[in-house]
């Protein structure tokens, strides 16, 4: 399939010594998340989870997400929680956020306005 979209996976820089050893990782899908592209997101989430169970998925460059993308996020959050961490979302555009609200997905994820707020929420937990 000639179909991948870029998904950046990066460690969020430490701020002093309060971080857990494995840190917080940021996953940034860049493009439309549909049945054609969801495997790129799944691979990126898997790769990030192998580094740390504390993930922030930055959705600011995602104009559209299908049920396949939602399933991938759901599966990754389950895995992160099972490993003692969590998966948090930030930067949803207005349309995508409305879809989350409308179908009831907003109750299944912690959603933050910005990357900084999402990262801070992890830092406050120590």
């Amino acid at each position: 399939m000639s179909s991948v979209i870029p998904v950046v996976v990066k460690r969020v820089e430490d701020r002093g010594g309060a971080e857990r050893e494995e840190g917080i990782w940021r996953v940034v899908p860049q493009g439309r998340l549909d049945a054609r592209t969801v495997s790129a997101l799944e691979s990126a989430l898997e790769s990030a989870l192998s580094q740390s169970p504390r993930l922030v998925v930055d959705m600011s460059e995602v104009p559209y997400i299908s049920s396949g993308g939602l399933r991938a996020l759901m599966a990754a959050r389950r895995r992160a929680r099972a490993q003692g961490g969590d998966l948090r979302l930030c930067g949803l555009n207005e349309r995508v956020e409305e879809i989350f609200d409308l179908i009831g997905f907003a109750a299944l994820f912690p959603i933050f306005g910005s990357l900084e707020e999402a990262v801070e929420s992890f830092r406050q937990e120590g």
Binding site: S66, S67, R71, M74, R77, L102, I103, G104, A107, L108
Partner: peptide, 22 residues
């Protein structure tokens, strides 16, 4: 059902559910 804890949400049927919601 999406009004349950994340770990209990089934993976199937989401596409049809979304179509009916929208």
């Amino acid at each position: 059902r999406l009004d349950v804890p994340l770990e209990e949400v089934p993976v199937g049927g989401l596409g049809l559910y979304i179509m009916r919601k929208l």
